[in-house]
Simulated scan of single mutants.
Amino acid sequence: MTARPTTGRPTTGRRARLRTALATAALATTLFTAAPAAHADTAVPPTLTNGFGLTQVGSPVVHSATDFSITVTTPQLSGTHEIRIFLPKDYAAEPGKRWPVVYFLHGGAGTADDAAAAPALHSDSAITVAPDGGLKGWYADWVMQNTVLGAANWQTFHLDQVVPFIDANLRTLTDRAHRAVVGLSMGGYGALHYAEARPDLFGHTASLSGGIDLDQVAIRGTVVATELNLPNAICAASTSGLNAGGCATYGPVVDSDAVFGSPYPVFGADHVWTELNPASPANLAKLANTGIDLYTGTTAPIDAFTAIASHTVKDRLDQLGIPSRLDDYGNGSTLSPTCDGGHDYGCWAPAFADYMPRLQAEFDAAN
């Protein structure tokens, strides 16, 4: 850091530049380092009761008084799965108050802990729930349940188990007007798809750099690349905020038809892709009474395609007369000094910082 001048206080311009540099450095540190270890003096989180097919294993991991994780098992999925939860700072102090809920869906090769890479998600006005979505779960009940990964019913896990489990254990507002689903990249697909699949649950959705048009050849190719764990796709598309800059893994190789069935449009073989495509007019029509926000950059190889998908969805929503908001921040210069328009938390963290106050205003209006 430059030493303070001995001739007097820094000029206004220098103070502004210094504040910007410090803020940028602090944000970068937050985005790309792991969550802090639990402290011995942190408060005990609420005790959650098993149910809805979820069984807790081990002890909660406490990051702070309002930030903790549980690990669960379910017959719908093989293995164990983390659910990270952020509580408002006044959650314990206001035992009679109920809160809106935001469900955050992480991207490919990510984990539930990626929620910590976007500080705005830890809101004092809402509960945030970040469930595991798998390295390549694609927020779907897989067509193939006999791969090396075993049971893979991610949509059932999230919508039929996690949501009612959270409502039963935490003081939530359970109407759709006070529940949102948001996500990025693979999770951006999941957020828009879940809002369409269950409009009774979600009154708000946001997709950041989402693979939201399954008719797009490049997006189908990305899904297949994650199934096959192709190295080039891994390096280009890693979305984990806690493992940035490296080549992550999508786990064991599975059949290219495992998630959505055959990707080839021959004699209707790709019918699952078509049925679950968030960009189809029939599915978009289900969002008639849903708040919809889309964010995308354009400069990274992947975001060049998510931008096309986002504009396709926006245009079709306009044609359907359904209000929505698209922020195409291009090279990132209009969004944040940390954003270069790429496929990473340097853009997604400030995008969430822009979105969360808008969402809170919608929650408040619903009151």
Score class of each variant (00 low, 15 high):
I302Y: 01
L294T: 08
F104A: 08
L31H: 06
L121N: 09
S256A: 10
T47S: 15
Q360Y: 04
A37I: 02
N169Y: 15
I219G: 00
L135N: 02
N367S: 12
E82L: 08
Y189I: 02
P337S: 06
T174K: 15
N146E: 10
G330Q: 15
A34D: 12
R84K: 07
S69T: 11
D90R: 03
M186W: 00
A258F: 02
T172H: 09
L326F: 07
E227Q: 14
A3D: 12
L208C: 04
G246S: 10
M356G: 02
W273I: 01
A34H: 09
A40F: 05
A115F: 04
D113Y: 05
Q145P: 10
S207L: 05
N367C: 02
T156L: 01
D113L: 07
Y189G: 01
A233G: 09
V181F: 06
L31R: 09
P263F: 00
T71V: 14
V102P: 00
G211N: 06
R84S: 13
A112D: 15
L159W: 01
S209V: 07
A218I: 00
G190P: 03
G268T: 11
A177D: 15
T306N: 13
A118H: 13
A118N: 07
S125E: 13
V254H: 02
A365V: 01
D124N: 14
C347N: 08
S207C: 09
G58C: 09
L214M: 15
V254E: 07
T74I: 07
L192C: 07
L77N: 09
